[in-house]
């Protein structure tokens, strides 16, 4: 290890993951630098969600290494806890807590995981809700909001832990078309602020504008990694070319 190179935000080496006999991730290598925005795309079942769920250990991997900000992601529960404090996650189905208000949704983790005082957590939550332009809805319950609003709350909720890395698992896939834009805008603002991000998404416009690099996965493998322009304009593999032609028409 050289002492001069800055520590990567995420280092994945030789990662394998099985579901029973099914080889879901095949020997994945990926390094994400600080501040980088990675877009992961690929057909359904290609392992892209599984990959990012391994990063915060919602899925345990079977072999290989994952290091997040210098913390080894392994069985040690203290490590898992530390990694999850560093890494925020946004889900396809929002997963807001239905029995808590928007504000309470955002306050819960800072209070329970960081031991923050109530007033302080409230200020923090309000700040991030304002940042995703939904501060005035703080007293409402998730079910009273539109899908786009709920997803913005979910982003604010993750940001309240002040993570250094954000994972997005198809954040716009269950949204109506007219709501996708408001969520992507929030994500772009976040990217502009220098957040390290890994986004599983099929929003190719977003990928072009924001991604530092794009990753194409198929059948549990990383088939191609390239900078956004090259990724779209000059795909090297047939599989990516076929995928892009399907998704872009």
């Amino acid at each position: 290890m050289s002492g001069t190179a800055p520590l990567p935000a995420i280092m994945i080496a030789g990662l394998d993951k099985f579901y029973g006999g099914f080889h879901a991730l095949k020997h994945i290598d990926l390094e994400v630098r600080r501040g980088e925005k990675i877009v992961v795309c690929g057909p359904s079942g290609s392992g892209k969600s599984t990959l990012i769920r391994c990063i915060n250990r919602l899925e345990p991997h079977d072999s290989g290494r994952i290091v997040v900000n210098g913390i080894d992601v392994n069985d040690a529960s203290s490590n898992i806890q530390d990694v999850r404090r560093e890494v925020g996650m946004v889900f396809q189905s929002f997963n807001l807590f239905p029995h808590l208000t928007i504000l309470e949704n955002c306050m819960l983790a800072p209070r329970l995981a960081l031991g923050m005082k109530k007033a302080e957590a409230e200020r923090l939550a309000q700040r991030f809700l304002d940042r995703v332009h939904i501060g005035e809805q703080a007293a409402k319950f998730p079910a009273q909001l539109s899908g786009g609003q709920q997803q913005r709350v979910a982003i604010a909720r993750a940001l309240c832990m002040e993570p250094r890395i954000m994972l997005f698992d198809e954040p716009t896939s269950s949204l109506d078309p007219e709501m996708i834009k408001e969520v992507l805008e929030v994500m772009e603002e976040l990217a502009d602020d220098g957040m390290t991000m890994i986004c599983v998404t099929h929003e190719m416009g977003f990928a072009r504008r924001v991604a530092s690099r794009c990753v194409f996965m198929d059948q549990g493998e990383i088939v191609e990694i390239a900078e956004a322009a090259a990724f779209f304009e000059a795909p090297r593999s047939d599989r990516l070319r076929a995928f892009l032609s399907q998704i872009l028409h």
Partner: peptide, 27 residues
């Protein structure tokens, strides 16, 4: 209780006891 609720608490680094008390049990 949807799986996503458990996953969301895990992703937010909320420990199991807190997750049970504040998120799972009420539901």
């Amino acid at each position: 209780v949807p799986r996503g609720q458990f996953e969301a608490t895990a992703a937010l680094a909320i420990r199991p006891v807190g997750a049970w008390l504040h998120v799972i049990m009420p539901q």
